[in-house]
Nucleic acid binder design. Sequence first.
DNA 1: TATTGTTATACTCTATAACTATA
DNA 2: TATAGTTATAGAGTATAACAATA
Lengths: 167, 167
Amino acid sequence: MERPARRRAPAAISRPIAERRGDADEPTLGVLEGFIGFHLRLAQDASFRSFAQRAGRHDLRPGRFAAMMIIHDNPGINQTALGRLIARDKSTITPLLQGLERQGLVVRRAAANDGRSFVLTLTPAGEATLRELLAQAREHDRKLDEIIGDRKDEFIRLLQRIVQDIG
Amino acid sequence: MERPARRRAPAAISRPIAERRGDADEPTLGVLEGFIGFHLRLAQDASFRSFAQRAGRHDLRPGRFAAMMIIHDNPGINQTALGRLIARDKSTITPLLQGLERQGLVVRRAAANDGRSFVLTLTPAGEATLRELLAQAREHDRKLDEIIGDRKDEFIRLLQRIVQDIG
DNA sequence: TATTGTTATACTCTATAACTATA
DNA sequence: TATAGTTATAGAGTATAACAATA
C-alpha cells in the first residue's frame, strides 16, 4: 500500500507534525515548544490576566500598582526615576500619575531644590488603597509561589538575569 | 541630637527605604523585589524588546512569527485552533492573518469538510521567510539559553506550570 | 443551538518628537 | 547643552458584541 503523497516541509526547519501523527491529531507547538521566549510570553500573559481579573474590582492594573508601590518605598522620588525603575518612558508616566492624582492617591509637589521636577508621595488615601492592593497582589503572588515551589529565589534570579543580560 | 521627624509609613506594608538609607540613595523596588509576577513582567518585557529589535528589519513580531511557526508545524490548521494555541481570541487572529496573506506568506483555502472554516498553509515564500525568521529567533533564544544555562528544561516547566495553574 | 470567521468599535499601553521651563 | 515633564500623535495588540454562514 502506498501512503498518500504529501507536501514535504523544508528539512531546514522541521517536518510537519501531521506527517508524523496524522492530520486529525491535536495541533502542536512544534519548535516553539523549546523556546524560552515563547513560554516566557505565555506565562507572563497568563499571570497578567489572572492578576487583572482579581484586581478588576479595585481598578488595579499592574502598572498602577507597581507605581504606587515604588512611590511608597521611595517617597519623594521623581517621575523620571520612577519610569526608570519600571522601564517605561517618561511620557508614559505622565498620564499614569495624572490618573492616580485625579483619584487622590498620589500628590505631586514641586521639588524644593529643582524647579523642573516633582516630588511624589502617596496620600493617606493612597497608602490605604495600597494596603488593599498589596493584599490582593500578595494573594496573587502566593499562588505563583505555590506553583514555583522552593526554587523561588533561583527562579527570580534567572528572570533578573534575563533583564540584565538580554540587551 | 535628635533625628529629624519623618512621616511614618504604615507598618502593615514596609518602612520607606529613605528612612533606612537616606533620601539621596538609589531608589529601590522594595516589596516588589520579592514578587515573582513583577520579575516575570520585567523579564518578558526585556526579552520582547530584544526580540523586536533584532526582528525589526524583517517585519518580524512575536505574534506573526508564532503564527507562521504554528501553521508550518500544523499545516491545515484553522484560525480558531491557531488562536487557542497562542491564547488569543479569534477576532485577534483575523487581522493578523490578513496581514500575512496580503504579504503572500500564508494561504487560506476553504476547508473541504467544513464550510465555515479556512485551512491555513504557508506559501513557498512563507516557508522561505519562516526559515529566515527562525534563524533570528534561534539566535535570540540561544541568548536566553545562555542566560538560563543548564536549568532550561526546569525553567520552561515552571513557566508552563504557571500557564496551567494560575487560572 | 453551537461554531467559524468578520466587522465595528473601543480601550490599554506604549513610544517618538516637539515643546516649555529649568539647571 | 542637558534634563524634567507635558502634549500631540500614532501604532501595536487586544477584546467584546453583533453578525452571517454553516454545522
